[in-house]
Structures are given as C-alpha cells and as structure tokens.
C-alpha cells in the first residue's frame, strides 16, 4: 500500500486518497476548433508509461485537495509531490 505525502497534510495511507490518472492533460481551450481526433486524444489517449509517471491524486478523506505526484509505475516509488499549478521535476506543470 502506497504512502503518499499530501502537500497539505503530510504522509498518509493510500486508502485516504483517490487516483485521478495522468496529470497535465490540458483541456482544449477552444473545443469547437478541436478536431475529432484531437478531442479523442484529450478524452481517452494516455501515455501510460512503464516508469516515471506524472499523475493526479486527491486527498479525498482528508483535505480534499488535488495535487500532482511523480511516481514510478514499476517500483511504485514516489519521486515528487507538488501542488496543482506548481512546478514538477523536469519542468512538468499545469496550465496557469
């Protein structure tokens, strides 16, 4: 069971959190100008890497804040935790 360091509350068991999947997926700013393919990419297509993965978690049974985690999907080791809008390792970040 993972232990996740909530940036607001500190380390807690995985059972307190809900998982939100891949982070930094940007909703197209003008959906009407977005092709069906690009919209499908936004909706469904995921990197799903074997290794380093930036993902969203929510401290659902705590502060209910969403935040970002960089985790290895094989070792499950957590490399970094950062707030929404914050700067992750390697420069990944959310839209302003």
């Amino acid at each position: 069971m993972l232990q996740i360091d909530c940036p607001w509350c500190g380390p807690r068991d995985e059972t307190e959190f809900s998982y939100g999947g891949e982070a930094h997926i940007v909703r197209p700013s003008d959906p009407d100008a977005t092709s069906d393919e690009a919209w499908a990419d936004y909706l469904f297509m995921r990197t799903n890497p074997r290794g380093r993965h930036a993902e969203q978690w929510c401290h659902a049974h705590g502060c209910r804040r969403w935040f970002n985690v960089v985790r290895d999907t094989v070792s499950y080791r957590i490399e970094a935790v950062y707030r929404i809008g914050g700067q992750g390792p390697g420069g990944s970040h959310d839209p302003a």
């Binding site: 995985e14 799903n48 074997r50 993902e55 094989v74 499950y76």
Partner: peptide, 13 residues
Amino acid sequence: DAYTGYGQRGSPH
C-alpha cells in the same frame, strides 16, 4: 487497484 501500475502487485486493502 486504482493506480496505474506495472508492478504485478497491488495493495493489501
């Protein structure tokens, strides 16, 4: 398990 994982293992809960 809720999270993306290639570890062929999950969480005990």
